[in-house]
Structure formats: structure tokens, C-alpha cells
Amino acid sequence: MEFNGQVFALMGAAMAALAGIGSAIGIGIAGQAASGVVSEDPNKFGQVLVLQALPGTQGIYGLLIAFIILLKVGLLGGGLVDISVSQGAYILAASLPIGLVGIFSAVAQGKAAAAAIMLVGKKPSELAKGMIFTAMVETYAVLALLISFLMINSIVL
């Protein structure tokens, strides 16, 4: 097998899926805080679970871009399309925003979520505000997702 654009394209898909690293770390951080709060008051399980889930979206966005790349290069259904090296490199470049922003923003969001969980521990009625603080971080993952998606969408194979 020769070295061609497909290698780059698959590296792109892999890169996008790496956003899951951030989500895993973020959810882990939030989970530690969540366990602390639940140890004081088990009834808050539902509330803190919602907050813990918030940093998980970056992983999903990464999966989303990875999936679109796989569809585009024909790895899912149909055979692999012929891709030139530069086309493959385009795809790799397009995967960078969500891959990188996903990792870092999910970690940051996990910290914000942990703080929000502490907030709920002290003032259960302020769940919505905690959610908003946490979601403020996610904006940038959403923007990165958008850029990755628009880039891939406009690459012609």
C-alpha cells in the first residue's frame, strides 16, 4: 500500500475523535466534585449528574466530525475514495479545530462544572445558573465544531 491522501484523511478523523480525551478528563473532574456533594446529600444525585454530563459534548462533537470524515472518504459504506495527498491534508487541517479546542475546552468546562456542582451543593436552587456558567465554556467548542464542519463540507473530493 502506498502513502496517499487517505492516510491523512484517517489521521484527520482520528484527530477529531481525540476531543474525547478532553471530555473524559472534564467529566472525571466534575465527577470527583459530584461524589463529594452526593456524599453530603444523596438526594442531589440527579442535579449534579446533569452538571457532570455537560463537559461530555466535546467528545460527541469530535465523534461527529470523525464520522463525517469517514463518510466523506467512503470508509463507511462504499469503498475508500481516491484522495490526493493535498486533499487528505485538507481534511486533516479541518479536523484540527474540534480536535484541539475540544480537548482543552472540555477540561476547562469540567473545572467549571465542578465549581457549579459545589454551587448546587450549597444552594440547590441555583442549578440553572451553574449550568449557564458551565455552558459558557462550551461556546468555543461549538464554534470549533462549526468551523471544522464547514471546512470539511467545502472540501471537494
Partner: peptide, 21 residues
């Protein structure tokens, strides 16, 4: 900021596609 209307819409749609695939 309202571009999230598109992004989250895509997220639902594409993840559904992943599941169906």
C-alpha cells in the same frame, strides 16, 4: 453566538446517523 443553533442541530442529526449506521 447564534451559530450554535446550527451546530447543535447538526449534533443531533449526525449522532442519529451514527446510531443508525
Amino acid at each position: 453566538s447564534y451559530s450554535r443553533l446550527l451546530a447543535l442541530g447538526l449534533a443531533t442529526g449526525v449522532i442519529s446517523q451514527v446510531i443508525n449506521t
